[in-house]
Computed example of a mutant assay.
Amino acid sequence: MNTHNSVPRVRKANPDDPTVRRPPIGSRGPMPGPNFLGLEGRIAIVQAQVFLLAIIVIAQLWLVTDALYELLSGRTANLGWLTIASGVTFALALLITFWPRRRIEGH
């Protein structure tokens, strides 16, 4: 045992990690973390986003299936339109995902 340098070293898996602090202790024990209350109606907006994105994913799967069928059957006339429709639904999915968050949180 080396007593010359007896400074305790705390080993960390990642030295860049922030220090972990214990939660504040209340009358009934440890208190929960910060209470991030959502804005009124936020749950309904998130549920609508999830529903619309599920519909878009189903449409994307149908478009990809149809495009593969057309490609493998040798009929390539509709592939351009299917690609454009897939791109439009992808852009719509991005819009649904990011636009309401910025409007509600005021960013």
Rank of each mutant, 00 (worst) to 15 (best):
R101M: 14
P30Y: 09
G38P: 00
R102C: 07
G74E: 07
V64G: 09
A44F: 14
E40T: 05
G106H: 12
P34G: 08
G33D: 05
A59C: 03
A44V: 11
P100Y: 02
P15L: 06
G106C: 10
I25D: 02
I45W: 00
L71R: 11
F90S: 12
L72T: 13
V20P: 01
N5L: 09
I25P: 00
G33W: 03
R42S: 04
R28I: 04
E70G: 01
E70L: 09
I56D: 02
E40S: 08
I55A: 11
R75H: 15
A59Q: 04
A44L: 15
P18F: 06
R102F: 15
V7M: 05
G29S: 10
P23D: 05
W62R: 01
L94R: 05
L53A: 02
P15C: 05
L52C: 07
P24S: 10
L68I: 10
F51P: 00
P32V: 01
S27N: 12
L79E: 01
V7Y: 00
S73Y: 03
R9I: 07
R22N: 03
L39W: 03
L71Q: 11
W81H: 05
V64H: 12
E105V: 05
A44N: 15
P32C: 08
I96K: 02
F98D: 10
I58K: 07
F90K: 10
R101Y: 11
T3V: 05
L37A: 13
L72H: 15
L39M: 09
F51S: 06
L53T: 02
L53R: 09
P18N: 12
G41H: 09
A48D: 03
R28N: 15
T76F: 06
E40H: 08
L71K: 14
E40Y: 09
I56S: 02
M1N: 12
